[in-house]
């Protein structure tokens, strides 16, 4: 079972995508989608040097995603306000560095996704020597606030989810 389905969640998502693309729930599409959902992760397995992610706490992941989407909405309106009304010369756009404790590549990938999806912050890279995250912030008021927010609200739950 473990060898046939290395990542059940990925297989489910693939089946769901196939059904959505065909817009039907017929038996033929279900069978074809199941076949695809079993074969594709097996074939794609060598492409992933770290293996598929194991999610230790699905509930914490859901809570994190809900929190992140609220955050995305909030910063969307903030950035729109800045673009529309603020003077561009007064903006304090800065690179900041955030020390990271998380080592799991899947957690880092999800963190990168959340940070880049939030308007106003763009991930640059993880500095290889110091394992610090270089981040570009659109309108920086308080660097310490950003460090606390990202470490407290994103990194700690992600470490729980992926490193457990």
């Amino acid at each position: 079972m473990k060898r046939l389905l290395p990542s059940p969640l990925l297989s489910l998502v693939l089946l769901f995508t196939w059904l959505l693309m065909n817009q039907s729930l017929e038996v033929a599409h279900l069978l074809l989608g199941t076949l695809l959902a079993i074969i594709a992760p097996l074939l794609a397995r060598p492409l992933q040097p770290h293996g598929y992610a194991r999610i230790r706490r699905p509930l914490a992941l859901l809570r994190l995603l809900a929190h992140a989407s609220v955050e995305v909405l909030r910063s969307c309106f903030n950035v729109s306000r800045i673009i529309l009304f603020a003077r561009p010369e007064g903006l304090n756009s800065q690179f900041i560095r955030i020390p990271l404790d998380m080592r799991s590549p899947h957690g880092l990938a999800l963190l990168a996704g959340i940070i880049n999806l939030t308007p106003g912050t763009v991930w640059v890279e993880v500095l290889p020597d110091s394992h610090e995250l270089a981040l570009h912030v659109f309108d920086l008021h308080d660097a310490q606030w950003w460090i606390d927010t990202i470490k407290g609200q994103y990194e700690v739950p992600l470490m729980e989810i992926f490193e457990g």
Binding site: V72, V79, S80, L117, P119, V122, H136, F138
Partner: peptide, 11 residues
């Protein structure tokens, strides 16, 4: 600064 503009279009 410009790189932050399209993010709101996309999301």
């Amino acid at each position: 600064q410009r790189i932050h503009g399209p993010a709101i279009t996309i999301t």
